[in-house]
Simulated scan of single mutants.
Amino acid sequence: MTVTTTTDRERGTSASGSPAPAAGIGRAGGRRSSAALVALVLVVLAAVLIASITLGSKAIPLGDVLQVLTGNGDAAVDRGIVEARVARTVVGLLVGAALGVAGAAMQGLTRNPLADPGLLGVNAGAALAVVVAIAVFGVGSLTGYVWWAMAGAGLAAVLVHAIAGLAGGGLTPLRLTLAGAAVTAGLGSWSSGLLVSSRQSFDSFRFWQVGTIGGRGLDLVVTVLPFFVVGLVVVLLAVRQLDALALGDDLARGLGENVVLARAAVAVGVAVLCGASTALAGPIGFLGLVVPHVARFVVGPDHRRIVPVCLVAGPILLLAADVVGRLVAPPSEVQAGIMTALVGVPLFVVLVRRGRMTSL
Score class of each variant (00 low, 15 high):
residue 352 V to I: 12
residue 33 S to E: 03
residue 257 E to M: 10
residue 210 V to N: 05
residue 286 F to N: 02
residue 149 A to R: 02
residue 108 G to Q: 14
residue 343 V to E: 07
residue 295 A to R: 15
residue 212 T to A: 15
residue 94 L to I: 01
residue 300 G to W: 07
residue 44 V to K: 13
residue 328 V to S: 07
residue 174 L to W: 10
residue 290 V to A: 13
residue 93 L to I: 04
residue 126 A to F: 03
residue 228 F to Q: 05
residue 134 I to G: 09
residue 242 L to F: 04
residue 82 V to F: 09
residue 276 A to L: 14
residue 178 L to W: 15
residue 14 S to K: 01
residue 174 L to P: 06
residue 155 L to Q: 08
residue 116 D to M: 09
residue 59 A to S: 13
residue 245 L to V: 00
residue 79 R to P: 03
residue 359 S to Q: 14
residue 271 A to E: 04
residue 318 L to H: 05
residue 74 D to R: 15
residue 48 V to D: 05
residue 209 Q to A: 15
residue 19 P to R: 02
residue 219 D to L: 14
residue 273 L to T: 01
residue 314 G to E: 01
residue 243 D to E: 11
residue 215 G to P: 02
residue 321 A to D: 14
residue 109 L to H: 03
residue 204 S to C: 09
residue 115 A to K: 15
residue 242 L to G: 06
residue 49 L to T: 02
residue 191 S to L: 08
residue 146 V to C: 03
residue 16 S to L: 03
residue 41 V to F: 05
residue 181 A to Y: 03
residue 237 L to E: 10
residue 265 A to S: 08
residue 215 G to C: 02
residue 78 D to Q: 13
residue 206 R to T: 13
residue 230 V to P: 11
residue 43 V to Q: 10
residue 22 A to R: 00
residue 291 V to K: 11
residue 237 L to S: 14
residue 338 I to H: 02
residue 170 G to R: 15
residue 247 L to V: 03
residue 185 A to W: 04
residue 156 A to Y: 05
residue 3 V to I: 09
residue 85 R to T: 02
residue 328 V to R: 15
residue 126 A to T: 12
residue 329 A to E: 13
residue 262 A to N: 04
residue 162 A to S: 04
residue 81 I to M: 08
residue 129 A to H: 07
residue 41 V to Q: 06
residue 56 G to W: 15
residue 29 G to A: 01
residue 81 I to C: 02
residue 221 V to P: 07
residue 90 V to D: 12
residue 355 G to W: 11
residue 206 R to I: 15
residue 65 V to Q: 13
residue 111 R to C: 06
residue 247 L to D: 11
residue 140 G to R: 14
residue 271 A to R: 12
residue 132 V to S: 09
residue 66 L to S: 05
residue 191 S to K: 03
residue 354 R to L: 00
residue 107 Q to A: 05
residue 256 G to V: 13
residue 174 L to C: 12
residue 80 G to Y: 01
residue 81 I to L: 04
residue 229 V to W: 13
residue 204 S to I: 07
residue 291 V to H: 09
residue 242 L to C: 11
residue 81 I to H: 04
residue 307 V to N: 10
residue 226 P to Q: 14
residue 176 L to C: 11
residue 70 T to A: 14
residue 215 G to W: 00
residue 53 I to Q: 10
residue 106 M to D: 02
residue 182 A to D: 04
residue 250 D to H: 03
residue 258 N to W: 03
residue 338 I to V: 11
residue 168 G to R: 15
residue 253 R to I: 06
residue 24 G to Y: 00
